[in-house]
Design a protein around this nucleic acid. Sequence first.
DNA 1: ATAGTATATCGCAATAATACGATTAATATT
DNA 2: AATATTAATCGTATTATTGCGATATACTAT
Lengths: 109, 109
Amino acid sequence: MGVTKTEIFTDEQNRLATMLKALAHPARIAILQEIIKRKTCICGGLVEELGLAQATISQHLKELKNAGLIQGTIEGVSICYCINPENWTLLEKALGSFFASYKMENSCC
Amino acid sequence: MGVTKTEIFTDEQNRLATMLKALAHPARIAILQEIIKRKTCICGGLVEELGLAQATISQHLKELKNAGLIQGTIEGVSICYCINPENWTLLEKALGSFFASYKMENSCC
DNA sequence: ATAGTATATCGCAATAATACGATTAATATT
DNA sequence: AATATTAATCGTATTATTGCGATATACTAT
């Protein structure tokens, strides 16, 4: 049918998948790296930095915001986007324990 | 146009995005968790465990394999899938340093 | 050889994601 | 008030993803 069957998975699995999906695009990774590199991030700067149209960048920012990875406050005419510290740490920890749950000696093939 | 412009991003950004995309689906997260929980994983068991059709599971396994997250060896009639230790560790480290690059005090809004 | 079992692949329908030009909304400057 | 600047939203074309029934493939057991 083309639509993910979220109802058969746990909330934790769905939440992790949703946040990872927000992360799983090179433009959004680049945006996050740029936000981290500078401390104040204005959308206009990203349009020059990356080679994407303003509408496209704005859309990626919206997805990152919806996923809770970034937050923005109006700063005069422009908008200051930065990392959402709480959710960033949450995802970092969720991923940490997910990866740590695998022990090398479990490999069988 | 509907196709990701990989050429304007670094190889590192594209690689990370590709692996994260493979991870960014609740079914594939569930599959990986199940592979980790048991130590030997047979596709048939997954069909019963998750509520998805055999064709769908097989497709998800293929994506995980293409991304290098799992590997499979023929084990008689069935196939034994397990984590690919090298790539698992690579992704774990790449994500680790990505998340660690953000320092709380960088928050401005 | 035949039948059974396990997994992959094909083909399709439905939906989601990507990108961008054009437009709109909101604030700043003159 | 008129104009410029910044970012969001709309509409749309293109492509990718998800899911599954049907079929194909490959190995086992009888």
